[in-house]
């Protein structure tokens, strides 16, 4: 992936190749500025690669494909403040041709899943930051995506809420079996949530390593993070991100 910059062409992403199996949860980590967000924009089809191809289920991605949902860091900008929670969730559902009753059912289902049942008529700005991000997650799973992409989804909430949201993501993944790719700068979080961690490094960036995470399920904030493998994995990935290995 190249960018045209005032000082010439900047080669941002070079040899990026990894695959994501159905139902898998992958995190993409790397030092800041390595091109994580660029990669994510390519994956979502918001940007076209200057060379190479992105495939989802064998289909080349050139524009946002069907069956894709996103959760972005900035929930205050990705939720529509002029729409109630239920209207926010139903907006992307309009294309799926559901009946009114089915739409209402879906909204109730996903809001219950994220623990916000009964908030249909509230506006996003009446909710706390963590709750708004739950709405964004509910909106994403409501379309029953084949692939869920999250861009630093918990970077704007406080630490306690962050743990709650991480566990929510694990639960949603378990209940809905959604294939997920998440960009994060938090290595602990990447290890805690993922089946594999894709480490980007270098300029132009390439895949340094794909680290398999074998922590057993169900995972839990205290036990999983306390395991020896957890510490080993996070140390290993940390060293790679820092370029020490």
């Amino acid at each position: 992936m190249d960018y045209q910059t005032p000082t010439g062409i900047k080669h941002v992403l070079s040899d990026i190749s990894f695959s994501l199996l159905e139902g898998e949860f992958a995190s993409i980590v790397g030092p800041s500025g390595v091109g994580k967000t660029t990669l994510l924009r390519l994956l979502t089809g918001l940007m076209k690669p200057t060379s190479g191809v992105i495939r989802i289920n064998g289909q080349e991605v050139n524009s946002p494909p069907p069956g894709l949902a996103v959760v972005l860091q900035d929930y205050t900008r990705s939720l529509m403040p002029w729409l109630t929670v239920e209207k926010n969730i139903s907006l992307p559902l309009k294309r799926l041709g559901l009946s009114k009753a089915e739409t209402a059912e879906t909204i109730e289902l996903v809001l219950t899943e994220v623990g916000l049942s009964g908030n249909q008529k509230n506006y996003p700005w009446q909710l706390s930051g963590g709750m708004q991000q739950r709405v964004a997650i509910a909106r994403a799973i409501a379309v029953r995506p084949q692939l869920l992409i999250m861009d630093e989804p918990f970077a704007s909430v406080d630490a306690q809420t962050r743990f709650d949201l991480e566990d929510l993501v694990l639960k949603v993944r378990d209940d809905f079996k959604i294939t997920t790719a998440m960009v994060t700068h938090d290595i602990d979080e990447a290890v805690y949530l993922s089946d594999k961690v894709v480490v980007l490094y270098g300029s132009p960036a390439n895949v340094k390593e794909i680290v398999k995470v074998d922590l057993p399920y169900p995972r839990n904030q205290v036990a999983s993070r306390g395991r020896e493998e957890f510490a080993e994995l996070r140390t290993k990935i940390y060293a790679q991100v820092r370029g020490l290995q």
Binding site: T44, G45, L46, S63, P64, P66, L68, A69, V70, L72, D74, R77, S78, M80, W82, L83, L91, P92, K94, R95, V143
Partner: peptide, 25 residues
């Protein structure tokens, strides 16, 4: 831009994007 990206990823039609997202924003 985040709002427009969101509309694109959720594949809103140009008309929906205009009436539901761009004009209210």
């Amino acid at each position: 831009p985040t709002l427009l990206d969101t509309a694109k990823v959720f594949r809103l039609t140009p008309f929906q994007t205009l009436v539901r997202v761009r004009i209210p924003a």
